[in-house]
Design a protein around this nucleic acid. Sequence first.
DNA 1: TATCAGGCCCTAG
DNA 2: CTAGGGCCTGAT
Length: 286
Amino acid sequence: MIERQIPHFDMEQICDSGQCFRMDKLGDGYYRVLAGNRRLKLRQRTERVSFYCSEKEFADFWENYFDLGADYGKYLERIDPKDRYLTEAAVNGSGIRILRQDLWEMIVSFLISQQNHIGRIRRCIGNICVRYGERIADRNEEEEAAEAGENRMDGAGYGFPTPGALAKATEEELRDCNLGYRAKYVLRTAQMVDQGDISLEEIGKMEYPRAKASLMELYGVGEKVADCICLFALHQLEAFPVDTHIRQALDAHYRSGFPKRKYAGIQGVLQQYIFYYELTGAGKQP
DNA sequence: TATCAGGCCCTAG
DNA sequence: CTAGGGCCTGAT
Protein backbone atom coordinates (compact mmCIF):
# COMPACT_ATOMS: atom_id res chain seq x y z
CA MET A 1 0.00 0.00 0.00
CA ILE A 2 1.18 3.48 -0.87
CA GLU A 3 0.30 6.50 1.26
CA ARG A 4 0.45 10.05 0.00
CA GLN A 5 -0.52 13.49 1.18
CA ILE A 6 -1.99 15.12 -1.91
CA PRO A 7 -3.20 18.71 -2.11
CA HIS A 8 -6.06 19.53 -4.47
CA PHE A 9 -7.14 15.92 -4.73
CA ASP A 10 -10.65 14.79 -3.90
CA MET A 11 -11.79 11.36 -5.03
CA GLU A 12 -15.45 12.11 -4.60
CA GLN A 13 -15.15 15.13 -6.85
CA ILE A 14 -13.11 13.20 -9.38
CA CYS A 15 -15.77 10.46 -9.40
CA ASP A 16 -18.59 12.91 -9.96
CA SER A 17 -16.76 15.07 -12.48
CA GLY A 18 -17.76 12.54 -15.11
CA GLN A 19 -14.39 11.98 -16.78
CA CYS A 20 -14.35 8.32 -15.91
CA PHE A 21 -17.33 6.01 -16.06
CA ARG A 22 -15.57 3.13 -14.31
CA MET A 23 -14.93 4.66 -10.92
CA ASP A 24 -17.06 3.85 -7.90
CA LYS A 25 -17.54 5.05 -4.37
CA LEU A 26 -17.55 2.00 -2.12
CA GLY A 27 -18.33 3.94 1.05
CA ASP A 28 -16.27 4.74 4.15
CA GLY A 29 -13.78 6.65 2.01
CA TYR A 30 -13.03 3.68 -0.23
CA TYR A 31 -13.10 3.83 -4.02
CA ARG A 32 -12.61 1.41 -6.86
CA VAL A 33 -11.04 2.52 -10.11
CA LEU A 34 -10.93 0.56 -13.36
CA ALA A 35 -8.67 1.63 -16.21
CA GLY A 36 -7.88 -0.52 -19.21
CA ASN A 37 -7.02 -3.91 -17.74
CA ARG A 38 -6.06 -2.45 -14.39
CA ARG A 39 -7.96 -2.20 -11.21
CA LEU A 40 -7.24 -0.23 -8.07
CA LYS A 41 -8.76 0.19 -4.66
CA LEU A 42 -7.96 3.32 -2.77
CA ARG A 43 -9.06 5.21 0.28
CA GLN A 44 -9.11 8.89 0.97
CA ARG A 45 -9.46 10.67 4.31
CA THR A 46 -8.90 14.43 4.05
CA GLU A 47 -5.71 14.84 2.04
CA ARG A 48 -4.38 11.42 2.98
CA VAL A 49 -4.75 8.93 0.20
CA SER A 50 -3.96 5.23 0.40
CA PHE A 51 -3.37 3.36 -2.84
CA TYR A 52 -3.74 -0.39 -2.50
CA CYS A 53 -1.09 -1.41 -4.97
CA SER A 54 2.66 -2.01 -5.21
CA GLU A 55 5.25 0.76 -5.39
CA LYS A 56 5.97 -0.29 -8.91
CA GLU A 57 2.40 -0.19 -10.06
CA PHE A 58 1.94 3.18 -8.44
CA ALA A 59 5.04 4.62 -10.03
CA ASP A 60 4.48 2.96 -13.40
CA PHE A 61 0.84 3.79 -13.79
CA TRP A 62 -1.40 5.34 -11.15
CA GLU A 63 0.77 8.31 -10.29
CA ASN A 64 0.56 9.43 -13.87
CA TYR A 65 -3.09 8.39 -14.25
CA PHE A 66 -4.14 10.76 -11.47
CA ASP A 67 -1.84 13.50 -12.79
CA LEU A 68 -0.07 13.71 -9.45
CA GLY A 69 2.90 15.50 -10.95
CA ALA A 70 0.86 18.61 -11.62
CA ASP A 71 0.30 21.47 -9.20
CA TYR A 72 -3.37 22.36 -9.44
CA GLY A 73 -2.78 25.29 -7.13
CA LYS A 74 -1.12 26.93 -10.14
CA TYR A 75 -4.27 26.53 -12.19
CA LEU A 76 -6.49 27.80 -9.39
CA GLU A 77 -4.29 30.87 -8.88
CA ARG A 78 -4.84 31.95 -12.44
CA ILE A 79 -8.56 32.40 -11.93
CA ASP A 80 -9.62 36.04 -11.93
CA PRO A 81 -11.02 36.80 -8.44
CA LYS A 82 -13.38 39.30 -10.05
CA ASP A 83 -15.05 36.41 -11.83
CA ARG A 84 -17.20 35.36 -8.90
CA TYR A 85 -18.96 32.54 -10.69
CA LEU A 86 -15.74 30.86 -11.83
CA THR A 87 -14.12 31.44 -8.47
CA GLU A 88 -17.01 29.78 -6.68
CA ALA A 89 -17.06 26.92 -9.13
CA ALA A 90 -13.32 26.37 -8.71
CA VAL A 91 -13.48 26.43 -4.91
CA ASN A 92 -16.37 24.00 -5.08
CA GLY A 93 -14.40 21.55 -7.22
CA SER A 94 -10.82 22.32 -6.26
CA GLY A 95 -10.05 18.63 -5.75
CA ILE A 96 -10.76 17.69 -9.33
CA ARG A 97 -7.91 16.43 -11.46
CA ILE A 98 -7.80 15.85 -15.16
CA LEU A 99 -7.09 12.14 -15.37
CA ARG A 100 -4.70 10.78 -17.98
CA GLN A 101 -6.83 8.03 -19.41
CA ASP A 102 -6.45 5.62 -22.28
CA LEU A 103 -7.17 7.00 -25.73
CA TRP A 104 -9.19 4.09 -27.05
CA GLU A 105 -11.17 3.78 -23.84
CA MET A 106 -12.10 7.47 -24.00
CA ILE A 107 -13.11 7.27 -27.64
CA VAL A 108 -15.58 4.47 -26.96
CA SER A 109 -16.76 5.87 -23.64
CA PHE A 110 -17.63 9.26 -25.07
CA LEU A 111 -19.20 7.77 -28.18
CA ILE A 112 -21.55 6.02 -25.78
CA SER A 113 -22.02 9.11 -23.62
CA GLN A 114 -23.76 11.18 -26.26
CA GLN A 115 -27.38 12.07 -25.64
CA ASN A 116 -27.32 9.67 -22.71
CA HIS A 117 -27.59 9.54 -18.91
CA ILE A 118 -24.66 8.77 -16.62
CA GLY A 119 -26.33 5.71 -15.15
CA ARG A 120 -26.98 4.18 -18.52
CA ILE A 121 -23.53 5.13 -19.83
CA ARG A 122 -21.98 3.20 -17.00
CA ARG A 123 -24.22 0.21 -17.63
CA CYS A 124 -23.40 0.22 -21.34
CA ILE A 125 -19.68 0.32 -20.69
CA GLY A 126 -19.97 -2.42 -18.06
CA ASN A 127 -21.86 -4.52 -20.58
CA ILE A 128 -19.25 -4.27 -23.32
CA CYS A 129 -16.47 -4.98 -20.80
CA VAL A 130 -18.21 -8.15 -19.65
CA ARG A 131 -18.90 -9.26 -23.20
CA TYR A 132 -15.69 -8.26 -24.97
CA GLY A 133 -13.17 -7.47 -22.23
CA GLU A 134 -10.55 -9.62 -20.59
CA ARG A 135 -11.22 -11.12 -17.18
CA ILE A 136 -9.01 -9.26 -14.72
CA ALA A 137 -10.30 -9.89 -11.20
CA ASP A 138 -8.09 -12.17 -9.18
CA ARG A 139 -9.38 -14.48 -6.50
CA ASN A 140 -8.94 -11.98 -3.66
CA GLU A 141 -10.81 -9.31 -5.48
CA GLU A 142 -13.61 -11.66 -6.38
CA GLU A 143 -14.03 -12.66 -2.76
CA GLU A 144 -14.01 -9.06 -1.65
CA ALA A 145 -16.56 -8.15 -4.26
CA ALA A 146 -18.75 -11.04 -3.20
CA GLU A 147 -18.51 -9.97 0.42
CA ALA A 148 -19.43 -6.46 -0.54
CA GLY A 149 -22.49 -7.90 -2.25
CA GLU A 150 -21.57 -6.45 -5.63
CA ASN A 151 -22.09 -9.57 -7.62
CA ARG A 152 -24.08 -7.89 -10.31
CA MET A 153 -22.60 -7.91 -13.77
CA ASP A 154 -21.29 -4.38 -13.70
CA GLY A 155 -18.12 -5.21 -15.54
CA ALA A 156 -15.91 -4.62 -12.52
CA GLY A 157 -14.14 -7.91 -13.09
CA TYR A 158 -13.33 -7.14 -16.71
CA GLY A 159 -10.92 -4.95 -18.56
CA PHE A 160 -11.82 -2.57 -21.33
CA PRO A 161 -12.20 -4.27 -24.72
CA THR A 162 -9.58 -3.68 -27.41
CA PRO A 163 -10.41 -2.25 -30.85
CA GLY A 164 -9.95 -5.72 -32.32
CA ALA A 165 -12.38 -7.28 -29.88
CA LEU A 166 -15.06 -4.68 -30.62
CA ALA A 167 -14.40 -4.78 -34.35
CA LYS A 168 -15.46 -8.43 -34.36
CA ALA A 169 -18.80 -7.64 -32.73
CA THR A 170 -22.00 -7.11 -34.68
CA GLU A 171 -24.25 -4.10 -34.47
CA GLU A 172 -26.98 -6.27 -33.03
CA GLU A 173 -24.73 -7.58 -30.27
CA LEU A 174 -23.78 -4.07 -29.33
CA ARG A 175 -27.43 -3.08 -29.29
CA ASP A 176 -27.95 -5.96 -26.89
CA CYS A 177 -25.39 -4.23 -24.70
CA ASN A 178 -27.95 -1.40 -24.59
CA LEU A 179 -25.94 1.01 -26.74
CA GLY A 180 -28.97 1.87 -28.87
CA TYR A 181 -28.20 3.85 -32.00
CA ARG A 182 -24.64 4.38 -30.76
CA ALA A 183 -23.90 0.72 -31.57
CA LYS A 184 -23.05 1.53 -35.16
CA TYR A 185 -20.77 4.36 -34.05
CA VAL A 186 -18.78 2.06 -31.79
CA LEU A 187 -18.68 -0.74 -34.34
CA ARG A 188 -17.58 1.34 -37.31
CA THR A 189 -15.06 3.26 -35.24
CA ALA A 190 -13.62 0.02 -33.85
CA GLN A 191 -13.31 -1.34 -37.38
CA MET A 192 -11.64 1.84 -38.62
CA VAL A 193 -9.07 1.64 -35.85
CA ASP A 194 -8.61 -2.13 -36.12
CA GLN A 195 -8.04 -1.94 -39.88
CA GLY A 196 -5.53 0.84 -39.44
CA ASP A 197 -7.59 3.46 -41.28
CA ILE A 198 -6.62 5.71 -38.44
CA SER A 199 -3.66 5.36 -36.09
CA LEU A 200 -4.21 6.01 -32.41
CA GLU A 201 -0.48 6.11 -31.94
CA GLU A 202 -0.20 8.94 -34.44
CA ILE A 203 -3.07 10.83 -32.86
CA GLY A 204 -1.35 10.49 -29.52
CA LYS A 205 1.58 12.52 -30.86
CA MET A 206 -0.48 15.31 -32.41
CA GLU A 207 -1.06 18.78 -31.08
CA TYR A 208 -4.60 19.72 -30.13
CA PRO A 209 -5.99 21.09 -33.41
CA ARG A 210 -4.78 18.16 -35.52
CA ALA A 211 -5.71 15.58 -32.90
CA LYS A 212 -9.23 16.97 -32.69
CA ALA A 213 -9.63 17.04 -36.45
CA SER A 214 -8.36 13.48 -36.78
CA LEU A 215 -10.67 12.21 -34.07
CA MET A 216 -13.62 13.83 -35.82
CA GLU A 217 -12.96 11.58 -38.82
CA LEU A 218 -14.18 8.70 -36.68
CA TYR A 219 -17.81 7.80 -37.24
CA GLY A 220 -19.92 9.20 -34.43
CA VAL A 221 -17.25 11.55 -33.10
CA GLY A 222 -18.32 15.17 -33.36
CA GLU A 223 -16.87 18.32 -31.87
CA LYS A 224 -17.98 17.77 -28.29
CA VAL A 225 -16.90 14.15 -28.09
CA ALA A 226 -13.56 14.97 -29.76
CA ASP A 227 -12.91 17.64 -27.16
CA CYS A 228 -13.68 15.23 -24.32
CA ILE A 229 -11.21 12.75 -25.79
CA CYS A 230 -8.54 15.43 -26.23
CA LEU A 231 -8.99 16.55 -22.65
CA PHE A 232 -9.35 13.26 -20.82
CA ALA A 233 -7.03 11.05 -22.86
CA LEU A 234 -4.51 13.33 -24.54
CA HIS A 235 -4.43 15.76 -21.61
CA GLN A 236 -4.76 18.70 -23.94
CA LEU A 237 -5.89 21.24 -21.39
CA GLU A 238 -6.82 23.77 -24.06
CA ALA A 239 -9.75 21.57 -25.08
CA PHE A 240 -13.03 22.98 -23.79
CA PRO A 241 -15.91 20.56 -24.38
CA VAL A 242 -19.25 22.33 -24.66
CA ASP A 243 -22.22 20.15 -23.80
CA THR A 244 -25.73 21.15 -22.82
CA HIS A 245 -24.76 21.92 -19.21
CA ILE A 246 -21.78 24.02 -20.18
CA ARG A 247 -23.91 25.69 -22.84
CA GLN A 248 -26.42 26.76 -20.20
CA ALA A 249 -23.68 28.00 -17.88
CA LEU A 250 -22.09 29.99 -20.68
CA ASP A 251 -25.43 31.52 -21.62
CA ALA A 252 -26.08 32.44 -18.01
CA HIS A 253 -22.65 33.72 -16.99
CA TYR A 254 -20.61 34.43 -20.10
CA ARG A 255 -22.91 36.17 -22.55
CA SER A 256 -19.96 37.40 -24.57
CA GLY A 257 -18.23 34.04 -24.50
CA PHE A 258 -15.87 32.33 -22.11
CA PRO A 259 -12.56 34.25 -21.81
CA LYS A 260 -10.45 31.55 -23.41
CA ARG A 261 -7.69 34.01 -24.21
CA LYS A 262 -7.19 34.89 -20.57
CA TYR A 263 -7.04 31.24 -19.59
CA ALA A 264 -4.99 30.01 -22.50
CA GLY A 265 -3.78 26.49 -21.93
CA ILE A 266 -5.98 25.62 -18.97
CA GLN A 267 -9.51 26.07 -20.30
CA GLY A 268 -10.16 22.36 -19.96
CA VAL A 269 -9.46 22.43 -16.24
CA LEU A 270 -11.84 25.32 -15.79
CA GLN A 271 -14.46 23.56 -17.88
CA GLN A 272 -14.33 20.72 -15.37
CA TYR A 273 -14.85 23.07 -12.44
CA ILE A 274 -17.85 24.59 -14.20
CA PHE A 275 -19.28 21.24 -15.24
CA TYR A 276 -18.99 19.83 -11.75
CA TYR A 277 -20.47 22.99 -10.23
CA GLU A 278 -23.45 22.88 -12.56
CA LEU A 279 -24.05 19.23 -11.82
CA THR A 280 -23.52 19.05 -8.10
CA GLY A 281 -22.98 22.52 -6.66
CA ALA A 282 -24.99 25.65 -6.12
CA GLY A 283 -24.79 26.40 -9.81
CA LYS A 284 -27.29 23.61 -10.28
CA GLN A 285 -30.33 25.87 -10.09
CA PRO A 286 -30.60 29.25 -11.82
C1' DT B 1 -47.73 11.11 -21.62
C1' DA B 2 -43.99 14.12 -23.12
C1' DT B 3 -39.57 15.62 -22.76
C1' DC B 4 -34.76 15.39 -23.01
C1' DA B 5 -30.25 13.52 -21.52
C1' DG B 6 -22.60 15.42 -21.32
C1' DG B 7 -24.62 14.76 -29.92
C1' DC B 8 -24.00 13.38 -34.32
C1' DC B 9 -25.29 12.11 -39.00
C1' DC B 10 -27.59 13.17 -43.00
C1' DT B 11 -30.34 15.61 -46.13
C1' DA B 12 -32.43 20.01 -47.92
C1' DG B 13 -32.20 24.53 -49.08
C1' DC C 1 -22.91 26.70 -44.53
C1' DT C 2 -26.98 26.36 -41.64
C1' DA C 3 -31.24 24.27 -40.19
C1' DG C 4 -33.84 20.53 -38.78
C1' DG C 5 -35.41 15.66 -38.51
C1' DG C 6 -34.23 11.20 -36.70
C1' DC C 7 -32.20 8.20 -33.52
C1' DC C 8 -32.16 3.90 -28.61
C1' DT C 9 -33.51 3.99 -23.96
C1' DG C 10 -35.15 5.40 -19.61
C1' DA C 11 -35.45 9.01 -15.68
C1' DT C 12 -38.36 12.59 -14.30
